[in-house]
Amino acid sequence: MNAIVKNTGQSEFESTVCHITASSDGPVIEIKDFNLWYGKAQALFNVTMNIEKGLVTALIGPSGCGKSTLLRSLNRMNDLIENLTIAGGMHLEGLPIYGPKVDVIGLRKRMGMVFQKPNPFPKSIYENVIYPLRVDGVRDRTVLAEACERALKGSALWDEVKDRLDDNALGLSGGQQQRLCIARAIASDPEVLLMDEPCSALDPIATSKIEELIDELKGHYTIVIVTHNMQQAARVSQNTAFMYLGRLIEYGDTEEIFTSPKLSRTQDYVTGRFG
């Protein structure tokens, strides 16, 4: 627990207060002075943070503060956007994510992603889950079937769909679809799981199922989760990063962030006084 003060600028937001729980395995992703512009508008300012291996990191902050932008920068989903400029670096276990020769597809294979709205493909449940393996060119039926079962069990959906794997995935309920997307994200056994408000479209029961799931998955995967639900962040994460206006304001141990944050701005936000 140490406060790093850097880039001393005029405003209090120019620096990040950092007091995280470190993982025994060290960080899996290191972000250093990361800046991002959509056209001329800057969306991220000097973000510096380490994402610890095997832990759950929650990203919180008011709407429009750049949580999704940061998350999508991790697996370079932002590459699709035109007129995007970035500065600064990110490393995934030493590999520069924005390095000149990096294989973006290989990089994305190391990071599964779950989106805010469930986005299953218009294919069968089975084909949805094994899609990452299909694009890898895996043909072996037994391997595929095993991967499918493992992923669906991992996302707590197996019991509900094991008899209807050939049905169209679009026929599932919203919560089931979201768990299907989680299964798809973990089917190829990635190192990091990125989740952007995975429960925002779900009812409390589906939400609690997914939270349980995150609990089970941590340790095996490193999880980064964006959420607007403070209780959820408090329940599932070990570290929490509070962002505001494109800056990382405070990044620390979840319990401390929610009980005794270092900055009043954070305090205001987690207690619901603004945001």
């Binding site: 597809i105 994305r108 294979k109 990071m111 986005n119 990452p132 694009v135 997307c181 994200a185 190829s188």
Partner: peptide
């Protein structure tokens, strides 16, 4: 995006 995030080209 879902497909690209799965590592599809």
């Amino acid at each position: 995006e879902g497909s690209l995030a799965c590592g599809a080209s």
